[in-house]
Measured scan of single mutants.
Amino acid sequence: DSWHDTVDGIELELHGADEELLKLAKELLKRGVSEEEVRRIIEELLK
């Protein structure tokens, strides 16, 4: 799946992010949310 590559990229960027955020990112990508949107959501949550 192409979203796996996206998640791997996000995981590299979010090496400090907790497991729950990564699960959320994967779930959003699986549901068709764009990579940009996922990054934006996670950045908001990390604030």
Rank of each mutant, 00 (worst) to 15 (best):
D1H: 08
D1T: 08
D1K: 03
D1V: 07
D1S: 12
D1Q: 12
D1C: 02
D1A: 10
D1W: 00
D1L: 05
D1M: 04
S2E: 12
S2H: 12
S2T: 10
S2M: 13
S2G: 11
S2Y: 10
S2I: 09
S2N: 14
S2R: 05
S2D: 10
W3P: 06
W3V: 13
W3N: 10
W3H: 12
W3T: 10
W3I: 12
W3G: 11
W3S: 14
H4C: 06
H4Q: 11
H4K: 12
H4F: 12
H4N: 13
H4E: 10
H4V: 10
H4R: 07
H4Y: 08
D5V: 10
D5L: 05
D5W: 03
D5R: 01
D5A: 07
D5K: 02
D5C: 06
D5S: 08
D5M: 03
D5E: 08
T6Q: 12
T6A: 10
T6R: 10
T6N: 11
T6D: 10
T6V: 12
T6S: 10
T6H: 13
V7G: 09
V7I: 12
V7P: 11
V7Y: 13
V7D: 07
V7E: 08
V7W: 14
V7A: 11
V7F: 15
V7T: 11
D8F: 03
D8L: 13
D8N: 14
D8I: 14
D8G: 12
D8Q: 13
D8H: 14
D8A: 14
D8V: 15
D8K: 06
D8R: 04
G9I: 14
G9Y: 12
G9A: 12
G9Q: 06
G9P: 12
G9R: 13
G9S: 12
I10Q: 08
I10S: 10
I10K: 09
I10N: 07
I10A: 07
I10C: 02
I10E: 04
I10F: 14
I10R: 05
I10H: 07
I10D: 07
E11L: 15
E11Q: 11
E11C: 06
E11V: 13
E11R: 08
L12N: 08
L12D: 04
L12V: 07
L12G: 07
L12E: 05
L12K: 09
E13G: 07
E13N: 05
E13Q: 06
E13L: 07
E13H: 04
E13I: 06
E13W: 10
E13T: 03
E13R: 01
E13M: 05
E13P: 07
L14W: 08
L14N: 05
L14F: 14
L14A: 05
L14T: 05
L14E: 04
L14I: 15
L14R: 03
H15T: 09
H15S: 10
H15E: 11
H15R: 05
H15A: 12
H15Q: 11
H15V: 14
H15M: 13
H15L: 14
H15Y: 03
G16D: 06
G16W: 11
G16S: 06
G16Q: 04
G16F: 10
G16T: 12
G16V: 09
A17M: 13
A17Y: 12
A17G: 09
A17E: 06
A17D: 05
A17N: 06
A17F: 06
A17R: 06
A17P: 04
A17S: 07
A17C: 03
D18V: 09
D18W: 11
D18K: 07
D18C: 03
D18H: 13
D18R: 10
D18G: 13
D18T: 15
D18F: 09
D18S: 15
E19V: 12
E19A: 15
E19T: 11
E19M: 12
E19H: 14
E19F: 12
E19G: 11
E19Q: 13
E20G: 12
E20H: 11
E20D: 07
E20N: 12
E20I: 12
E20T: 14
E20A: 15
E20L: 11
E20R: 14
L21I: 11
L21F: 05
L21R: 01
L21K: 01
L21T: 06
L21E: 01
L21A: 03
L21C: 03
L21G: 01
L21P: 00
L22E: 03
L22G: 02
L22F: 10
L22H: 05
L22N: 03
L22R: 10
L22V: 07
L22K: 05
L22P: 00
L22C: 04
L22S: 04
L22I: 10
L22Y: 15
K23L: 05
K23F: 06
K23A: 10
K23W: 11
K23G: 02
K23M: 09
K23T: 06
K23Y: 07
K23H: 04
K23S: 05
K23N: 08
L24C: 04
L24Q: 02
L24H: 04
L24G: 00
L24N: 01
L24D: 00
L24M: 07
L24R: 04
A25V: 11
A25N: 00
A25P: 00
A25E: 01
A25D: 00
A25K: 03
K26T: 05
K26P: 00
K26V: 09
K26G: 04
K26N: 05
K26R: 15
K26W: 15
K26E: 09
K26S: 06
E27G: 05
E27T: 15
E27V: 13
E27W: 14
E27P: 00
E27Y: 12
E27S: 13
L28N: 00
L28A: 01
L28D: 00
L28R: 00
L28E: 00
L28Y: 03
L28H: 00
L28Q: 00
L28C: 01
L28M: 07
L29P: 00
L29C: 01
L29F: 05
L29T: 01
L29H: 02
L29K: 05
L29E: 01
L29A: 02
K30P: 00
K30F: 11
K30D: 09
K30E: 12
K30M: 14
K30N: 14
K30C: 02
K30Y: 09
K30V: 08
K30W: 08
K30Q: 08
R31M: 09
R31E: 05
R31C: 03
R31Y: 06
R31A: 08
R31L: 11
R31W: 07
R31Q: 08
R31H: 06
R31K: 10
R31D: 03
R31T: 07
G32I: 01
G32P: 01
G32R: 02
G32F: 01
G32L: 02
G32M: 02
G32S: 01
G32T: 00
G32E: 01
G32Q: 01
G32V: 01
G32W: 02
V33A: 06
V33C: 09
V33R: 07
V33Y: 15
V33F: 15
V33W: 13
V33T: 05
S34C: 05
S34N: 08
S34D: 06
S34P: 12
S34R: 05
S34I: 03
S34T: 09
S34E: 05
S34K: 08
S34G: 07
S34H: 06
E35L: 15
E35Y: 15
E35W: 15
E35F: 14
E35I: 15
E35M: 15
E35T: 11
E35P: 15
E35R: 15
E35K: 15
E36H: 12
E36C: 02
E36N: 10
E36Q: 13
E36M: 14
E36W: 15
E36L: 14
E36Y: 15
E36F: 15
E36S: 11
E36T: 12
E36P: 10
E37R: 06
E37K: 06
E37S: 04
E37M: 07
E37L: 09
E37H: 04
E37V: 08
E37T: 07
E37P: 00
E37C: 06
E37G: 04
E37Q: 08
E37N: 07
V38W: 03
V38C: 02
V38P: 00
V38S: 01
V38R: 01
V38K: 01
V38M: 03
V38I: 07
V38G: 01
R39D: 01
R39T: 04
R39L: 09
R39S: 04
R39P: 00
R39E: 02
R39F: 13
R39Q: 04
R39W: 15
R39A: 04
R39K: 08
R39I: 07
R39C: 03
R39N: 03
R40N: 04
R40W: 08
R40G: 04
R40Q: 07
R40M: 07
R40F: 06
R40V: 04
R40H: 06
I41Y: 07
I41N: 01
I41C: 01
I41T: 03
I41K: 02
I41R: 02
I42V: 06
I42F: 03
I42T: 01
I42K: 00
I42M: 04
I42N: 00
I42D: 00
I42A: 01
I42W: 01
I42S: 00
E43M: 15
E43Y: 15
E43I: 14
E43F: 15
E43L: 15
E43A: 14
E43D: 08
E43T: 14
E43S: 13
E43R: 15
E43V: 12
E44C: 13
E44T: 12
E44L: 13
E44R: 10
E44Q: 10
E44D: 10
E44W: 15
E44I: 09
E44Y: 15
E44N: 07
L45D: 00
L45W: 11
L45M: 11
L45A: 06
L45Y: 12
L45Q: 03
L45S: 02
L45K: 05
L45R: 04
L45I: 09
L45V: 04
L46S: 04
L46E: 02
L46A: 04
L46W: 10
L46G: 03
L46I: 14
L46C: 01
L46K: 05
L46T: 05
K47S: 08
K47H: 09
K47L: 12
K47I: 09
K47Y: 10
K47P: 03
